[in-house]
Amino acid sequence: MKKIMVTGALGQIGSELIAKLRSEYGTDNVLATDIRRTNSAIEGPFEILDVTDTNKMHTLAKDFGADTMMHMAALLSAKAEEEPLFAWNLNMGGLMNSLEVSRELNMQFFTPSSIGAFGPSTPKKDTPQDTLQRPTTMYGVNKVAGELLCDYYFHKFGLDTRGVRFPGLISYVAQPGGGTTDYAVDIYYKALEERKYTSYIAEGTYMDMMYMPDALQAIVDLMEADPTKLDHRNAFNVTAMSFEPSQIAASIKKHIPSFEIAYDVDPVRQAIADSWPDSIDPSVAIAEWGFKTNYNLDKMTADMLLKLKLKLSA
């Protein structure tokens, strides 16, 4: 990767991915794009882009001289259930456009999939890399279709497509963006601000999670991996930990003993969570490109509370 174009650059992952890529490859070598420019402090190349506008996407990529496309623009799980038609048009239309532009300009390509690509009939524990995928959400349908499309573009056109199945991602930088796993971000804010949190996910509901620094490093490591060693290329299972709400609360209480957790379950997001695995098996990613993580639950909690305290006091 030398010149990288990123869609959805102001989103939950994109906003931190831009900083990571610019630190690795240089500010002027990373073009950030999004549908609007917010007050987020993004320095360096930035362009407005609606990912459903193929012509503009092509023009921006060509003019920038991009050799890599990272397509991060998407509507997340809970939001997608509220507006399924919009989710289909945005998630699938944007992906198709970015794949086509990457094919036309012979770019390397990355897009993330998700544990949302699994469904209630998928094995719940140590979910393998290759298994039954019958999701019951629009977001999940989008992700499965996206995995297949990326494989298709690799086999049909030789496009260097790569991707991972992200679990819930936890970050102190970006606010929650409408995902089912976002409780595991919001709980840290509430712990510092109110010393209590009411979870919309039921106690005992396990889901896979990763701390954002590990997720960003995984993207870079996969994109830099030797292509001859990638048998799967797309939708690699990656994870760092699996926990349920009371466990993250217990980790927080080690730093804030007065913290309390309560429950008021949201049936929509709970149904989504129940359809996903309790834990997934990342052994294929480990074997094919050396995937690894640095953060477990307690190490992540300590860092989240420290960084959020600084952020909130500022």
Results as ranks from 00 to 15, higher is better:
M92S: 11
F118C: 07
L159Y: 01
L169D: 06
I219W: 05
G178W: 06
G179Y: 06
N91T: 11
E104K: 07
V141Q: 02
L148V: 07
T111R: 07
L169C: 12
Q175S: 14
K196I: 08
G94M: 02
C150A: 13
L216I: 15
G204T: 05
Q129L: 10
G140S: 07
M223P: 13
V173N: 13
N106E: 12
F154D: 05
E194N: 15
Q133T: 07
G140L: 01
G146C: 02
A202G: 10
E104M: 13
P128Q: 05
P176N: 08
D226A: 08
F110I: 02
M210K: 01
H155S: 11
I201G: 07
F110S: 09
D182P: 10
G178L: 03
S98R: 10
Q108K: 15
F157E: 09
L159M: 08
Y188A: 12
V173A: 14
K156E: 11
G116V: 03
V144M: 03
L192Y: 11
M207C: 15
A218W: 06
V144F: 01
M138Y: 01
G146H: 00
M212F: 13
G204R: 13
Y188T: 09
F154C: 05
A117W: 00
M96W: 03
G140M: 04
Y139A: 00
Y183T: 08
I201K: 02
G140Q: 01
Q217I: 12
